[in-house]
Design a protein around this nucleic acid. Structure first.
Lengths: 334, 334
DNA sequence: CTGAAAGCGCTAACAT
DNA sequence: ATGTTAGCGCTTTCAG
C-alpha cells in the first residue's frame, strides 16, 4: 500500500505538499495539486489512519458500547447514532459489552486505546462509581445511554422508567383491575427497580395495597415470563392484570395464560414494556410501553458531538415513555 | 494520557523493557516486571493502539460491513462474528453500508484505512467486478457473506437461495395448490432472482406452467407485500398460495388477504422467507424458509481468521435453507 | 507556494 | 536480562 512518501516522489514534490492536498489545505498551486492528485490515483494511495491519528492525536471516530449486538433494541440505537456521527464525517466503532463486567470493561479499554474522540455507552454491569471515575480520567466526552447517574446528569440520556411502570399499571387500574401482578426483570438492574417503583406508586396512589406476593422477579426472557405465571398460580394468587417489565416476558406470560385456558384480555390483561417489533404481531397485539430507542442513539451521538465542539440540533436528554394500547388489555372481568 | 516513555522513566527502565512486559515477552526478570507493572498502574497507562499498529503494521482488528445496523437479521450476524473474533483476542469493527453504493464504498475505505486485518462484507450494491478488484489489490482476506461470486468461491459464505425458493413452492405444491403466486424482492438483487428461479423450477417440475402474471416484483417491505396482493387481485388472477420472498412481504400479504375477508390458510396459504423473530408471533404463525444468519457471521469470521493463520474449527461455506412449517400454510381449498 | 525536519508512541533488531 | 536506536506514515512548524 502506497505511502505519502511514494506519492511525493512520484509527483516530484515534498511529503508536506502531498499532505496539504490530501487535507485540502489552500496553500497549494492548482498545477501541483493536479500533479499530486494524479500521482495519488495512479498509486491507489490510501492515507494510513494510524499514522494520521498518531500525529494529530485524534481519530475522527466515536466509540459505542452496547450490551448485545443482536436484537432490534440495539439495532435501532446503533443505526440512529451512526447516522448522526456520519453526518459530520466521523465514524462509529461499535463493540459489544455482552452484559458482563469483564466484557464491558474490555470494550471500553479497546475503544480508549483506539483513541476514540467520544464514548457512547450502554452499560449494564459497570457500577456508577467506576463510570464516574472513567469520566473524570478520560479526557473525552462520555455519554451514558438509558441510564441516569446522579453525579453526571448532563452526560446521560435516560428514560423515566418509574413513569413507564406507573403508566402500565395505571392503565390497568383505569380499566377496573384491582389485582395486578408484576413480573420484573432482574432487580439488580436499576431500570427494573425503577419500573417496579412506578408500579407500586400507581397501586398505592389508587388506594390499593402493595402486595409482595403479586410481584415475581424474573429475567427479561420469554421463558421467564411463562415461569412467572406458573409461580403466581402456585402461590394461589388471584389476578386479572399482569404488568410485565418487558415484552419478552409479557409474551411468555400470554402464552402461559392461554395454555391454562385463560383468555387475554377477557380473563387477564397483559401489558408489556419496550414495544419491540413483535408486539405488533402477537395475537392479540400487545399493549406495551414505548421506549424511544432511536432517540437514545441519536441524542447520545449529538450530545457527544456537541461536547466536541460540533454544531448539532437541539438535544433532548430525558425522555418520557408512552403507553401503546393494543388488544392485550381490556376491562377487568366481573 | 501516559506514554510508554513516561512509564519507563517512572520505573527506571528503558522503553524496550516496558514494551516487553506489556507484550508478555519472557525476557524480563520478575523484579523489573513488578516495577514496570506498578508504574503502569500508577500512571493509568493505556498503550496507544495507533502507535502500535503503525509500528507493527497490523491492527488485530477485523472489519465488518453490514447493510443496516438495525433489524434482527444483521444483529445475529454481527453477534456471531464478534464472538468468534473475540475468542482470538481480536476485535470487530462494524460499519454500515446503508444499502447504497456510495456508503458501501465509504465503509470499505474507512476500514481499509484503519488497516483491519480482514474484511467481512455483506454488500448489496457493489457489483461483483469491483469486489474482485478489491480482493486482488487489498492484501488481506476478504470474505463475502450471503453472496456467491463465481470467481471467488472460497471467499464466500452463501445460501442456496434457489433451493429456498424451491422448497417454499414445493411445499405448497405438495399441499395440492396449483395456482401459486410469487411476490419477489427487487429483481436487481441476486438473491431475489435466485429465489424466483427456485420457484419457477418447482412449478415447472410439477408439470405446471410458469405464468408471469402470477409474479409480482416488490420491495421486501410489508407495505409492498400488501400492495402486491392488490395488484394480483386487480389482474384477476386466481391463486390459493402465495410464496413471498421475505417475511415482511408475507406478513403484508397476510394482512391484505384478511382485509379482503379471506382466511389464511383456509382460503390462501402464505409462505415467507427469512424466519425472522416475528414469524413465530403472527396469527397464524408464518410458514417460512430459515436462513442460518448466525452461521453466516460465525463462518465468515472463522474463514477470515483461518486465512490469517489462526486455528479455527471446521468451516462451512455453503448453506442449505430449511423450511419451517407453521400455521399459515395448509391444504388447497376444494 | 513549497520543502526540510522534528516529532507522535511504539516495536524490533542489535548491542551490551 | 536490559538498553539504544532506527524506523512505521503522517502532520506541522519553521524556513525559504
Amino acid at each position: 500500500m502506497a505511502t505519502i512518501r511514494e506519492v511525493s516522489k512520484h509527483a516530484n514534490v515534498s511529503v508536506a505538499t502531498v499532505s496539504r492536498v490530501v487535507n485540502g489545505n489552500k496553500w497549494v498551486s492548482d498545477s501541483t495539486r493536479e500533479k499530486v492528485l494524479a500521482a495519488m490515483k495512479e498509486l491507489g494511495y490510501q492515507p494510513n489512519s494510524f499514522a494520521k491519528a498518531l500525529a494529530t492525536n485524534k481519530s475522527d471516530t466515536v466509540g459505542m458500547v452496547v450490551s448485545d449486538l443482536g436484537g432490534p433494541f440495539f439495532g435501532d440505537m446503533m443505526r440512529a447514532a451512526e447516522d448522526e456521527v456520519r453526518k459530520l464525517g466521523k465514524h462509529l466503532i461499535i463493540t459489544s459489552g455482552h452484559d458482563t463486567l469483564d466484557s464491558e470493561q474490555d470494550a471500553i479499554e479497546f475503544l480508549m486505546q483506539r483513541r476514540v474522540d467520544a464514548l457512547l455507552l450502554h452499560l449494564d454491569s459497570i457500577p456508577d462509581e467506576d463510570i464516574i471515575k472513567l469520566s473524570d480520567t478520560a479526557n473525552i466526552p462520555i455519554i451514558l445511554m438509558n441510564r441516569l447517574i446522579p453525579e453526571l446528569p448532563d452526560q446521560c440520556i435516560s428514560l423515566d422508567n418509574d413513569m413507564g411502570g406507573y403508566l402500565a399499571t395505571q392503565h390497568l387500574i383505569e380499566l377496573g383491575h384491582t389485582n395486578i401482578a408484576c413480573i420484573t426483570g432482574p432487580l439488580f438492574k436499576a431500570d427494573a427497580r425503577s419500573r417496579l417503583a412506578g408500579y407500586r406508586r400507581a397501586i398505592e396512589q389508587a388506594g390499593m395495597e402493595y402486595d409482595e406476593r403479586l410481584v415475581i422477579e424474573s429475567d427479561y426472557q420469554e421463558a421467564g415470563g411463562k415461569a412467572s405465571i406458573e409461580r403466581l398460580r402456585r402461590r394461589n394468587m388471584r389476578f386479572t392484570g399482569v404488568v410485565a417489565q418487558n415484552d419478552h416476558m409479557a409474551i411468555g406470560a400470554m402464552n402461559a395464560l392461554k395454555m391454562h385456558g385463560l383468555s387475554v384480555p377477557d380473563d387477564v390483561s397483559v401489558v408489556g414494556y419496550d414495544d419491540m417489533v413483535m408486539a405488533r404481531y402477537t395475537e392479540p397485539g400487545l399493549t406495551t410501553v414505548n421506549i424511544p430507542v432511536a432517540q437514545f442513539g441519536q441524542q447520545a451521538a449529538n450530545l457527544a458531538l456537541s461536547r466536541l465542539g460540533e454544531k448539532t440540533g437541539k438535544i433532548f436528554q430525558h425522555f418520557q415513555p408512552e403507553l401503546v394500547v393494543r388488544g392485550s388489555s381490556g376491562p377487568a372481568p366481573k
